[in-house]
Design a protein around this nucleic acid. Structure first.
Lengths: 365, 365
DNA sequence: ATGGTTGCCGTACACGTGTGCAATAAGGAG
DNA sequence: CTCCTTATTGCACACGTGTACGGCAACCAT
């Protein structure tokens, strides 16, 4: 442009000519800036870090030149020397699961606010992919890991521990090993949903679980049982069934429930996705929700309020949980110790998918 | 542990003692492996790359030792020297939008298959965050970028172009600038949906758009108009309204439609999320879907089939689109040129949310 | 004038990996 | 036995950044 060279007219021209032609192709490096500013590259490094060790106007000049040249420090070079990549990994089973993506949203948001990048590791529920994904994380030298996959938590945590970086699990604990985790009050939440049904007069209440839910499924199931026990309702094993996350399996399980001699008048579902399948199966048999069968979910995904009838469910502040997990991870990465378990309260949201139990001749609690 | 030093008893001990204590803390480096294998570090590097330049049994020994030590090559060091990070960025407006996360799924999957990592850049629909996210990508030296955000495409593409890496847009073109993109047949798809309604006897058909849909909203709106024109139905400006992605705004727009003197008997929605809001608003006025008002969506998100009534919509193979975008990006990154525009066919899925137009006295096409 | 600060900057490393080139040994041909 | 190939390995760099340390000038106090 129109800027002048400053001083030093002699010798400089010849000495720098041999590198200048290549400058256009590469991204400018710290050395290019140093040459233009007539200083050494450490001075540039310090100036851009606002170090007090460099003269104020020298620093200003350097920053100006860096700006003009569109200089962007290489995070990879910096990562090599500082041994910190300012990158965290987000390990997810299925990213297109609304729960996972909501948590991911919270994680990504807080990470970005602190200048951390998020490496997305999608395991796709495929064991081979999961293993490879973890190997990748090792090579990438991430500073920390957030896991939103109960399956990975349960099966691969030992592999992850070998990476020797802080890990925070979301909605999953690892039995037997002390690991940092952010969880919802699974048991209390499902208990509240079940008690809500009991108050509405239901006695035959089914539980539709998810065999891939691992720890969280176990906790919710326990909450369901606790509510029954407290109300003096016996636990009927034939009413506690499970799917595997696929809609087909869930619907089949619900059909089986409704073929029983005394079918349930209400179904507590492991989560909202499961409830979606359950409601469809119920309707497929010509029954109505909630007049014939009440349904509850878990999560309060975005669509829950928009269904007809709107879904009664247990709300998880998913995005906030992602934020908390990330903040927890920051603490651990900076060397502070932090609470091993953070438990978040669950809130029952009553909507239209639950109603008073229908009158039947069999009814006699 | 219990491993022996091998040979070289003299001199070695003293010379290496000063480094060994730190070995336990650090991840093993290529030099550590080299020392244990009694070779130079370049030999280790070549052995682990299966280079034919290294003796077969030497290579085997080296690989064995590397395995035992749990050695993982540092991708950051490699990235520094090769000037390729094997990392792509996935730029998303809102990750918790089901469309985005489905595309992200496809992108992540194919990237992982080729050994590429995915850096998640969530713009959160916040201009300041978007700018910062792009700066981050520059520093991280990503090899390529996939954008699933019509807004970023429209506003920040110039910034992105400055990074000088290949870019592929999903469902968004950048008007005026030639950019690689994978898009659905927006216009044809919406036209098919509208024609479907016309065949059912509808004449007063509304279009509920999204002002943040930019290019894809414009194309779908054009498809809607084209269908009307072909059927000889005049375009009524008061029937073409728009929301902004938030359910509140959409519902308000639909309420306004239904307050018209001759309200529409059908609503074509920009996408499934919009349709969710529209159906709720319709029901809030005591009207039934589809008996009183038919509704169509766009995307065929997972919940569309599970609604009551199930949603008639235009299917986008979102995950496949993510895969195609990624494969396209691979081509570009390897220097090959590739088709600038890849257009995918859209498929109309007819379900229960559309029905024959109700008989009315005003009806006379 | 001398010694000691202080402020600022450059020199010389280091981080962990990849690669061109030279060096060495082994083997074959003459 | 000598020369030329070929196979294998090590040496010396480079990549772009951060930082401990020393040097130098200016300033102050003696």
């Amino acid at each position: 442009m129109a800027e002048r060279d400053g001083g030093k007219p002699a010798g400089v021209a010849h000495g720098s000519v041999k590198r200048l032609p290549a400058l256009a192709a590469r991204q400018p490096s710290i050395k290019d800036i140093a040459r233009l500013a007539h200083v050494s590259h450490p001075t540039v490094s310090r100036a851009l870090q606002n170090s007090p060790l460099v003269n104020a106007e020298t620093a200003a000049k350097i920053r100006k030149i860096a700006e003009e040249q569109g200089y962007r420090a290489s995070a990879v070079a910096r990562g090599l020397v500082t041994r910190r990549t300012r990158t965290i990994a987000l390990l997810v089973t299925m990213l297109d699961d609304p729960f996972s993506s909501a948590v991911a949203c919270g994680v990504a948001e807080t990470a970005a606010d602190r200048g951390y990048a998020v490496l997305l590791a999608n395991a796709h529920a495929d064991p081979e992919r999961e293993r490879r994904a973890i190997e990748e994380l090792a090579e990438r030298r991430v500073d920390g890991i957030v896991v939103t996959s109960s399956r990975v938590g349960a099966l691969y945590l030992l592999l992850l521990k070998a990476l020797d970086v802080p890990i925070v699990l979301v909605n999953d604990q690892y039995p037997g090993e002390l690991v940092h985790a952010v969880t919802i009050a699974n048991q209390e939440g499902m208990r509240a949903a079940t008690e809500h049904l009991i108050e509405l007069g239901h006695r035959r209440i089914a539980y539709l679980g998810d065999r891939n839910g691992y720890q969280s499924d176990a906790a919710r199931r326990a909450g369901y049982k606790a509510a029954l026990a407290r109300a003096g309702i016996g636990f009927a094993p034939e009413l506690a069934v499970e799917g595997d996350g696929r809609p087909d399996a869930e619907m089949e399980a619900v059909h089986a429930l409704l073929r029983l001699n005394t079918p349930p008048t209400a179904v507590c579902c492991y989560n909202d996705m499961t409830a979606l399948g359950a409601m469809r199966a119920i309707r497929a048999r010509g029954l109505r929700v909630p007049q014939d069968v009440s349904v509850t979910g878990f999560d309060d995904l975005f669509f829950a309020a928009y269904l007809a009838p709107a879904l009664t469910t247990v709300r998880q502040p998913m995005r906030q949980m992602g934020q908390m997990a990330m903040e927890n991870l920051f603490k651990l990465m900076s060397g502070q110790d932090s609470a091993a378990q953070m438990k978040i309260e669950a809130e029952l949201i009553v909507r239209g998918s639950t109603a008073k139990a229908p009158k039947r001749e069999e009814d006699q609690a």
